[in-house]
Design a protein around this nucleic acid. Structure first.
Lengths: 346, 346
DNA sequence: CGCGCTCGATCTGAAACACGA
DNA sequence: CTCGTGTTTCAGATCGAGCGC
């Protein structure tokens, strides 16, 4: 077999100095003579020595971040994670990832505990707020828990959170549909036990009411975010709300199914039916026709979360213990062909 | 401030036993009397004690997995990661994630070293094989490196690898286009410094040749996997290969752009133009028209990788040190409306 | 620059105890 | 009463690095 991995002692012996000197070189201290330092570095390189994070972690603050998320198959989640990984690497932080097996999973105590066992310096919680799982999370937080930054939930429910103004985005896009002259605007929502889904619905209904329109029960259908569910929901709307001439869909993936279904029924978009989505995934520019949507900066969201945790480590911050630190990002309306009946399609 | 976290000593003191007994309870040993065990568990729960993974890691084999990947924004990659996370949690493994900032990044030595510093038991390398970065990876592997399982690369280049038979998938779908009676079949490839892109192109050209067709330079355009690049590539094909009546696109996202562009030019799919993709992302069933594609089991790929590393830990395996352990998964052809000109579109 | 101690857990060897022969 | 046998427990050394002196 191969020899066990070299330790700091092996290096020390090979250099003819004490382990302390090696340690100093590793940590870039000044009190080592240039000659010794060079010699040590050479030996380290030659032996392929790497310090043990475990041993080191016993004496120092860890530089590991925990991330809890759910639904990696959704583009918004995976893009957020990309933002997190890149920013964490910028700051030299390691990252331990946990994924909830399903959105309904409420018992995350073991996940949080496992992260605490790893001595993480902070936790980014990017799983959606569904039903009462927020309560479950709160109950799962053990004493001595590192700071947790919550993404994409109800900003009111957590002390440290970053979210996107779903209400505002939905209001903007609904208003745009009204301005384009559409009369009967339906909504396909996300699962209504999701906070984000409820906010988007609220933006839609408020925009209609502010424009003096009535909001009937038959103009709303609930989806599950999945493309397939968009198909079902739209089919029901066609039956139950035949006067519909526009629909605001709670995410782009379901909007894709609406476009597909409308095409199969020979409905012309945007002439006979206006369609708008939410999320602003890059593919939406290539839907047929290109999709009007509300763009969220998922990547920026992830990066911001990392920076927030990093800030909490600064000594001056930890003392001031900001009671509530809530950031709300504003989404951006992107107008494309699927809602512009006045002009030629691009 | 709050008191520091409880250690095993605190628990021992509170129970009036030695730390050794606590340790035994934590590790589910048999040699603890039921009374003592219960008492200890109660105190642990009451104090909110959690063992430190660092201290533990100094004496035992770690149960942490390292994952290196690139391109989380691509659906295939994020789905693979989902497979990895869920399977790892099945086995009680922790997971440290590293993402290459770009596909071109070749200097991954620091990433691998950082993982080794964390004493990972194995590494899953799911970044694509691009250009000569394979050579770079090899050079970056320090001595005493834990086993590395490579996903999606050239199976020949790594001892431990899992990949999907891109050649076979491409051959199947190209053959299908031929069988449907399409005469002039173009290809939009991925970036040709990617192994996978070259394999798919090879499958396409071989299928054409086997059918007695010639393969001209003007029937091939290179994309970058991104939807936008599909648009460019297709525009060039329209100009340079006007007799084209079908196109095999190297991934679904670029195929979306082809459908979009064809629609803008008034080209009817599948009647005037057959279109097929690769990957089998769930949205492709809702493209207009629904897309024929080659489905890869990304999730299964990730799960398999975890199991493979797990296997290597079994003592009987490590001794037999299998020289080359290569798994090649077979992709599945999914025939949808975009290539079926004989029948009505669904 | 180095010695010796420390971090928090695990491992080793052996002690303390109960039991029946 | 002593001796083995087996169970339960403990004190002390130990892992690899960092820190004070």
């Amino acid at each position: 077999m191969q020899p066990p991995r070299a330790t700091i002692k092996d290096v020390a012996r090979a250099c003819g100095v004490s382990t302390q000197t090696i340690s100093r070189v590793l940590n870039d201290r000044v009190d080592v003579s240039p000659a010794t330092r060079e010699k040590v570095l050479a030996v380290i390189d030659q032996m392929g020595y790497l310090p043990s994070a475990y041993a080191r972690g016993m004496r120092q603050q860890s530089s590991t971040l925990g991330v809890v998320l759910a639904g990696l198959q959704h583009k918004g989640i995976s893009t957020t994670l990309k933002g997190i990984t890149l920013e964490a690497q910028n700051y030299g932080l390691d990252l331990i990832l946990k994924e909830l097996p399903s959105f309904e999973a409420t018992n995350m105590k073991p996940l949080i505990q496992s992260l605490m066992t790893q001595q993480v310096m902070g936790i980014i919680y990017a799983a959606p707020e569904v039903g009462d799982n927020w309560v479950q999370v709160q109950k799962s937080i053990p004493p001595h828990c590192p700071p947790i930054v919550y993404l994409k939930g109800n900003p009111a429910s957590a002390p440290l959170s970053i979210s996107i103004d779903n209400y505002q985005g939905a209001y903007l896009v609904s208003n745009h549909l009204i301005a384009q002259g559409y009369q009967n605007i339906a909504h396909i929502s996300g699962p209504l036990d999701w906070f984000e889904a409820r906010e988007r619905r609220r933006g839609w209904s408020q925009a209609l009411r502010d424009a003096g329109r009535s909001v009937g029960d038959n103009s709303l259908q609930e989806g599950s975010w999945d493309t397939a569910s968009g198909h079902n929901a739209f089919t029901k709307l066609l039956k139950g709300f035949p006067e519909m001439d526009a629909v605001f869909v709670a995410n782009d993936q379901m909007a894709l199914a609406v476009l597909s279904c409308a095409w199969q029924h020979g409905l012309k978009v945007p002439e006979q039916l206006g369609v708008a989505g939410f999320d602003g995934i890059s593919e939406s520019a290539y839907f047929i026709p290109s999709l009007t949507t509300v763009k969220q900066d998922f990547r920026g969201l992830g990066a911001l979360a990392v920076r927030k945790i990093k800030q909490l480590q600064e000594p001056e911050m930890s003392s001031s213990k900001v009671g509530a630190d809530t950031t709300i990002l504003t989404p951006e309306l992107i107008i494309r062909a699927s809602t512009q009946r006045s002009i030629e399609r691009a």
